[in-house]
Design a protein around this nucleic acid. Sequence first.
RNA 1: CCGGGUGUGGCGAAGCUUGGUAUCGCGCUUGGUUCGGGUCCAAGAGGCCGUGGGUUCAAAUCCCGCCACUCGGACCA
Length: 479
Amino acid sequence: MAQDKKQVEQITDMEVDFAQWYTDVCKKAELIDYSSIKGMFIYRPYGYAIWENIQRMMDAEFKKYGHENVYLPVLIPESLLQKEKDHVEGFAPECAWVTMGGSDKLEERYCVRPTSETLFCEHYKNIIHSWRDLPKLYNQWCSVLRWEKTSRPFLRHREFLWQEGHTMHATAEEAREETQRMLNVYADFLENVLAMPVVKGQKTDKEKFNGAEETYTVECMMHDKKALQAGTSHYFGDGFAKAFDITFTGKDNQLHYPHQTSWGVSTRMIGGIIMTHGDNNGLVLPPRIAPIQVVIIPVAQHKEGVLEANRAVMDRLVKAGFRVKMDDSDQSAGWKFAEYEMKGIPLRLELGPKDIEKNQCVLVRRDSGEKTFVSLDGIEDTVAAMLDSIHDGLYAKAKKNLEDNTYACSSLEEVREKMQERGGFAKTMWCGDEACEIRMKEEAGVTSRCIPFAQEHLGDVCPICGKPAKHMVYWGVAY
RNA sequence: CCGGGUGUGGCGAAGCUUGGUAUCGCGCUUGGUUCGGGUCCAAGAGGCCGUGGGUUCAAAUCCCGCCACUCGGACCA
C-alpha cells in the first residue's frame, strides 16, 4: 500500500529538482553539515554512523583475505610524488600544498595526500627484499584531500573519508587476481549490504587511474539515471615498482620487480545509498547498513504500562541483535513518524494500549509504507524476516531501474537522442579508439562508464567510426 | 576556473527599488493540554542583517572587493 500523501514538506520533490532533493535529504536527515570551507563537510553523527557500519563490515571482509591495516603520513614530499610521471600529472591540478612549518618556509613543499600510492611505494621499498616478504596486503582507512572546483555532499568533497588498499605481489597473475578479488568484495558488499545492483567492468584507457595499467570499476545507476562509480580496483603491473626501484630476490636468486594493486571505496557510497533508495519523504536506508534498524514509538505513552511494554519489546529486539531506538520523547506520535521516515529507518514499531491488550504491535515498512499488525510472540523472527524483505525489495527496485534504463544503441545519433530523452546507460559496440570516445562525449554528451565483463555482441562494427568493434561499452552521464 | 542566482535569530521568508528604532511563520524555553500521521493554548528567550572596505548626519537597504551556497559550463583518478 503506497502512501498517497507526502509526509515531509521540508524536502523538495525529486521530480521537481533532483539536485535540491538530494541536498535537502543530506541536511534534513542530519547526515551532513556545511563548514566554513568550500567542499569540506561535517559528517554528523547519523551520517558518520553509516560510515562506521560500512567500515566495520568491509574491514572484516578485507581481513578475511589477509589484509592488514596500517597508517601512513598525511603529507607527501613533492619529490616523492613526482617519481611516477603519469601519476603526478593526474593529481597535480588537485593537490593542496603545505609550504610553512611554524613561521619558517619549508625547503621542499609537501602535498596533503590525494592518494597514497607513492607513500606505500616508498615504504615497500624498505620492507620488501625477498619473495618471502610477499605478498604485502596493506589497507589504510584515512581521509584524502583533492582541491575540487565544485563540490557536493558525499559525492565530491575536497576532503573525504575512504579506504585505500595497496598490495604487492610476486607475480602479475597474483596481482591481477587480487584486483578482481577486491572488485568482487566491493560488488558483493554493494549488492548484499547496500542493496545497490552493480555493473562490473573495466575502464577504458581514457578513464583509467593515472599510473595504472588496468582499472576496474563497479558502476551503479542512481534514481535520476546518472552513473555513480561506487568502487574501483587497479592493476599497476610493475610500473611503480620500477619508478620507485622496489625489487625482491626470487626463489631463483634473481632480482624481480613486484606487481602492485590498489583499490578503494569512499564516503561517496553514502551518496549512492541516498540517490538509489531515497524518496520524496527523505532517506531510505537499506536495513543491513542502517544505524537504527527499528524505531519503537510508544503510543499513548502516558498510560499505565505502555512504556514498560515498549521497553520490554526493545530489550527483546536488542537481545536478538537488532539496532533499535525507542523514542519516548514528548513529541506527538505523528511528529515522530515523520521524523524517522525522513531519516530512513527501515522499520517502525508502534505499540499502544490497544496492542498490549491483544499481545500485538504495528510494524510499518519505510520502503512501501505498508502497515501490518503482528503478534508479539516471535517478534524477533517477524522483524528479521521483514528487514530481509525490505532489503530484497530495495534491491529489486534498484535492479529494475538499472535494467529498464539500459538499452542497446547502434548509432551515435541514437545514443544522443535516447540519452537526452531518457538518460540511463546506452550500450554500443566500440572499436577501442580514444578518438571515438571523445566524439561520443562531444556529440552525445556521455562518457564511457565501463567495458562490462558481461559482454554482448550487438554488431560487428563501431557505430562511431565504422571500423571493426572490439568491445561492448556502457555509456552514461556520471556524477 | 567562466557565466547566472542567493546570503536577514536554529530553519523558511518579508523588508532593499525610494537609506531613518529589526518584521512574520516554524522551531526553541517554561507551564498547562493533547497523544494510533507533524495537537492546542499562554507566557518568554534569541539577530556584529555572510564578510571587509567605501559613500552618508545616518546603511539590511546605495557602491566596490572577498567568502560561502546554488544552477549551468569547463574540469574531475
